[in-house]
Simulated assay, not measured.
Amino acid sequence: MPILRRTLDGLYALAAGLAALSLLGIFLIMVAQMLLRQFGVQVPGSDDLSAFLCVATTFLALAATFKRGELIRVGMVLERFPPAARRGAELLALTLAALIVGYITFWTGQDALFSWEIEEVAQGTVPFLLWVPKLAMPLGAGLLLVAILDEWIQVAAGLRPTYVLAAEDRAARGDFSAEV
Rank of each mutant, 00 (worst) to 15 (best):
M1R: 01
P2F: 14
L4F: 14
R5H: 13
R5Q: 11
R6D: 11
A15M: 14
A19D: 03
L23D: 04
L24F: 15
F27P: 01
A32P: 04
M34H: 06
V41M: 13
S50E: 12
L53V: 15
V55Y: 11
A56Y: 01
F59S: 07
L62Q: 04
L62D: 04
T65S: 12
F66E: 03
R68L: 15
L71A: 13
P83A: 15
P83S: 14
P83M: 12
A84S: 10
R86H: 09
E90W: 04
L92K: 02
T95Q: 02
A98V: 13
I100G: 03
F106K: 08
W107K: 09
G109E: 08
Q110C: 07
L113P: 01
F114G: 10
F114L: 15
S115T: 09
W116T: 03
E117A: 06
E117T: 07
E120F: 10
A122P: 03
V126W: 01
V126L: 10
L130G: 06
W131G: 00
L135Y: 07
L135P: 02
A141C: 09
A141G: 05
G142S: 05
L143A: 06
E151T: 10
I153D: 00
Q154F: 15
Q154Y: 14
Q154T: 14
L159R: 09
V164W: 13
R170Y: 09
F176D: 01
A178D: 10
